[in-house]
Design a protein around this nucleic acid. Structure first.
Lengths: 343, 343
DNA sequence: TTGTATGCGTTATCAA
DNA sequence: TTGATAACGCATACAA
């Protein structure tokens, strides 16, 4: 259906010059006298000419656009990263397309192929979206397309990887709870299979939690370590299970805010007071965390920094000469404890 | 940077046939004997060949992909529509790119141009993203690129428009509150300027609210009609103002859930009980609305239906013969009252 | 059934 | 300074 009416040819004809001259004024390459330039520009205006980006991409082998793949657009954690990323890219004069795989790994892989086949200039993979197998295959096939992975460790050294030290953060969070006097701290973890299971910080968060308990000589009790799937409902369900226990926990550490919020809902349903009866700690610090009441204590993921850093790597790579870049392949960030009313 | 290693030519050479034969097996056009086909397919596999979509688009003048422009990815209302839309499109074999203009109208306009220049096969505009001026200009220039607008009335009859009768919904919601005995019902409206101000339902919601009050012979009091900007913080601020009033309202109707949630926060801060002290009504029914406590009474926007309908229009248009389509240009949906604990 | 040639709209390399 | 013209990778009408 789509048709581009006017081409560079029409502009050339209209202004009485050749297409190469038009191209020259369009791209500011070569020198064109002001008078000619004026004439061409008038013609462009008159005809409402816009260069066909597809043809440009074909010729230039680059598209000036980037792809972002995300596994769950409904999770604010992702949208907050994406917002920062996109904005920074835009400031650098680059467009970006977002693909939402909607928690379906097959879609993520297909989107990834689609992006590559459309010759986008780079890709950002956030958390658990595209499979290792697919990335491995295509990063070999398109070695010149930079890939930045956020919170996912692909074990491919061609990839730029942005990771958060979640073990440390979870350790600190748990220790914080312990120091506050909580003795029976439950954990709601990320999923061990399915979407989200390959998120870098998933296991780490549980490890940090366990280490803190051990250090404080508190028992690590598997009965109160429940698995969720990073969505709100799973946090709610986990909390309900926790409440059915003969000896219920006095604090709950959820591996992300959405699950913590679900847990909060469960607690309110049975009229338990937070933090009086049970304390709550989340992870991510999505905007919502500070809006609910009691405000959720959580670990602030450096979402903005992650997004911006990813953008900057891409932008730098776009300017850089081929071989002499000194961007570190793996970069670490940290999450910061944000104490609020829920503990 | 990006380079596509193998082209259709390489495949042809490798399998000892001509490029047209390869093209034929690739696109399943024409008849190719099984033996030849096998050979070609083996070559494709061996070389890891993938067709260059850019070249395909240039030649075929269509890209099999659609663009979605949204003004604020951080608002779950949008992501919920987008999710449904994308999924339905995918089921129809079409990809889609999401553009987030991040509440900046200049970016929305630029994205719109970008999409058009990249020859995407269609565009979905959600709420208040691209300016009327830009749409008008480009819809003339690219008359064959279908545009579907959700909750925005562009007054251009080339556009497919999906609208929700918010006046009616708001009327019903307000009447519902009145019937419950609330007498002094405040409203937090959408913004009269800036991003969001052109959302179709913005004025409508206020109108429905006023009509209900009038019908019940209740005063329409401008002191308790405050303007927000559809974001959470603005709801919180508005609620604070409302609470400072000498005679505070006994119910608050917010023009969207995010603002209602902000109002809820404000109420909790001063320890007012919902709905005992003040009742709360939202609009949209984002997932969160049912998760907070008390659960938010709201008007359910048919987000899924809107998204899916937009996708279906696009899909139908992609198959249809040029002139004989009977898709209605403007379609109305309705929002449904979802009573929960906050009233 | 398969191959050749042309064009899609640009950019870029050369001559003029 | 400007203008032909050859790619870019693919699809397709037309020939063989």
């Amino acid at each position: 259906m789509p048709t581009t009416k006017t081409t560079i040819k029409d502009v050339a004809k209209q202004s009485g010059v050749s297409i190469s001259t038009v191209s020259a004024v369009l791209n500011a390459t070569g020198w064109v006298p002001d008078e000619t330039k004026d004439r061409v520009e008038r013609a462009i205006d008159a005809l409402g000419y816009r260069p066909n980006r597809i043809a440009q991409s074909l010729k230039k082998r680059r598209s000036n656009a980037y792809g972002i793949i995300v596994s769950d657009l409904l999770n604010p954690y992702f949208t907050e990263i994406v917002s920062a990323l996109q904005l920074r890219l835009l400031e650098g004069g680059k467009y970006s397309f977002i693909f939402n795989s909607d928690r379906r790994s097959d879609l993520a892989d297909k989107s990834f192929e689609f992006i590559l086949d459309r010759q986008l200039d780079g890709i950002v993979l956030i958390s658990d979206s595209v499979s290792e197998k697919t990335v491995r295959k295509y990063s070999k096939k398109y070695p010149d397309v930079p890939i930045v992975a956020i919170e996912r460790d692909y074990d491919l050294d061609s990839i730029y990887t942005l990771l958060v030290d979640s073990e440390k953060a979870a350790f600190e969070a748990t220790t914080f709870l312990i120091n506050l006097g909580y003795k029976r701290i439950a954990m709601i973890t990320g999923p061990s299979s399915g979407v989200g299971s390959s998120t870098y910080g998933r296991l780490q968060r549980t490890e940090g939690y366990k280490r803190a308990l051990r250090l404080a000589k508190l028992p690590v009790n598997d009965d109160i370590i429940l698995e969720g799937n990073f969505r709100m409902e799973s946090g709610e369900q986990a909390m309900h299970k926790l409440l059915c226990l003969p000896k219920r926990p006095d604090a709950v550490f959820a591996a992300n805010d959405l699950m913590a919020l679900g847990a909060m809902k469960a607690l309110k349903q049975v009229n338990l007071h937070i933090p009086g009866d049970i304390a709550l700690m989340g992870y991510d610090d999505i905007a919502l965390a500070s809006m609910v009441s009691p405000a959720l204590t959580t670990l602030a993921m450096p979402k903005k920094s992650l997004g911006e850093k990813a953008a900057e790597i891409l932008l730098q790579l776009a300017e850089e000469e081929p071989e002499n870049n000194d961007i570190e392949r793996v970069q670490f960030f940290s999450a910061m404890l944000v104490p609020r009313d829920s503990v």
